Simulated scan of single mutants.
Amino acid sequence: MDWQIEAKRLLRAEMVRMGVSVNDLAEALASVGMDESPKSLAVKISRGKFQLAFFLQCMSALGVESVTVTLPKSKPTSFM
């Protein structure tokens, strides 16, 4: 499982669902005090390497109240 691809896919899916471009997201983030240029934002999303905190800030800036994350099934792991 490539987790960066999944993170990127989830963020992009929310943007598409809401009809939001990278420029729109940059403006929304600026309105909550995050200074991200559209270019740097596009690169960050394209790489898929961002912290959960960044993802949550994006969702908050877009007014998203909940996100459903579906993970692929994997073998059970023993924690003991």
Results as ranks from 00 to 15, higher is better:
M1S: 09
D2F: 03
D2K: 13
D2E: 11
W3C: 02
I5Q: 15
A7M: 08
R9L: 08
L10H: 11
R12S: 10
R12K: 14
A13I: 04
A13N: 13
M15Y: 07
V16K: 12
R17L: 11
R17W: 03
M18W: 05
G19T: 04
G19Y: 10
G19E: 05
G19S: 05
V20M: 12
V20S: 04
V20R: 11
S21N: 09
V22T: 12
A26I: 02
A26T: 01
A28L: 13
A28R: 14
L29T: 04
S31Q: 14
S31L: 13
S31W: 02
S31P: 01
V32R: 14
G33Y: 08
D35Q: 15
S37N: 03
S37I: 09
S40E: 10
S40N: 15
L41D: 02
L41C: 04
A42M: 05
A42N: 08
V43M: 12
V43S: 13
I45N: 00
S46H: 11
S46T: 11
R47N: 12
R47V: 02
R47T: 07
K49F: 06
K49P: 00
F50H: 10
F50N: 09
Q51C: 06
L52S: 09
L52W: 03
L52N: 04
F54W: 13
F54Q: 06
F54R: 05
L56K: 13
L56Y: 06
Q57W: 02
Q57A: 13
C58G: 03
C58D: 00
M59F: 01
M59Y: 01
S60L: 04
L62C: 04
L62D: 01
L62H: 01
V64M: 05
V64S: 01
E65F: 04
E65L: 11
S66D: 10
V67P: 00
V67A: 11
V67N: 04
T68W: 03
T68Q: 13
T68M: 10
T70D: 11
L71E: 12
L71I: 10
P72R: 10
K73V: 12
K73L: 13
S74C: 07
K75F: 03
T77P: 00
F79Q: 13
F79W: 15
